[in-house]
Design a protein around this nucleic acid. Structure first.
Lengths: 143, 143
DNA sequence: TTACATTAATTGTATATACATATATTTATT
DNA sequence: AATAAATATATGTATATACAATTAATGTAA
């Protein structure tokens, strides 16, 4: 077996580093909101809905901005409806679609969550100064 | 610490960018090995075991280098044993422990997987030159 | 209008994962 | 030696997710 690949390609090093940081950060943020009984996907959906400023979103509108845009969005929204954090009604003009909006209760919870998440986020990124953060973001965007 | 609500704090931008890239990369690499019926966690475990160069690993040895080091490592190894890609025996000196080694079949599969993954990894990082990759890695490590 | 294709959302199912708890073995204490 | 504590791994259970298939509504073309 050819095991003499003694040096790791840069692209692998980069890929694994990003994946590791990504999962670490995911875990950190998840734990920051877990005490409110909210998962990261649910949090994500709530933020997307708030971003619509009252304008209803279809399931696809939400899906396309989710971390993992897939068929599970239905069930994520289900959970939020059960918790009364969002409302879902059938779209009258196209009854295949649904109209999803965030409730006042959802907005209230989101302010609490934002606080907790912001705190956690600045905590886990504190090893870089603003200049470095900007450079890092720029490189990641270019990637 | 207090952030102005109207503009997105740098730390949030950075966090979300990393999380997004991390999941994107995870999906890319996963899809590159999926056709061989291997998940990313399983691939990860196989690589860790190969890295031991024949020296058996305990479950904890494997766990501590996994992306998500948790109780599921037992079941990940289970899968690999079923596929005959690794061997698991009870450790004679401490029968609480298990000794895990990668099989020749596992090594063979790994060379195929490495190829596919290397290709995918250089593909998804091609927008940066080597210099930029190094800078990006350095910033991520500092983070 | 009927038939066919397309679209939006949901559901079924298998697998994955998180979290708590259990089992087995070894180590430490009395 | 008997009992308790610590350690290594495994299991039960609930939830999450991926993937495929299904249902319902709309659009299109003969």
């Amino acid at each position: 077996m050819k095991e003499n690949k003694m040096h790791i390609p840069l692209s692998r090093k980069l890929t694994t580093t990003i994946i590791k940081k990504g999962t670490d950060f995911t875990d950190e943020v998840s734990s920051a909101i877990k005490e409110q009984g909210i998962t990261l996907q649910q949090f994500n959906a709530l933020r997307i809905l708030r971003g619509r400023n009252g304008k209803p979103a279809s399931l696809q509108d939400v899906s396309k901005d989710m971390i993992h845009a897939n068929s599970n969005t239905t069930r994520v929204i289900d959970k939020l409806v059960t918790k009364k954090l969002v409302k879902r009604v059938q779209c009258p003009s196209d009854r295949r679609q649904i109209e999803i909006t965030i409730t006042q209760e959802g907005l209230n919870l989101l302010t609490i969550l934002d606080h907790q998440v912001d705190e956690k986020e600045s905590e886990i990124t504190q090893n870089l100064n603003d200049e470095e953060k900007k450079r890092l973001i720029a490189l990641l965007m270019k990637l």
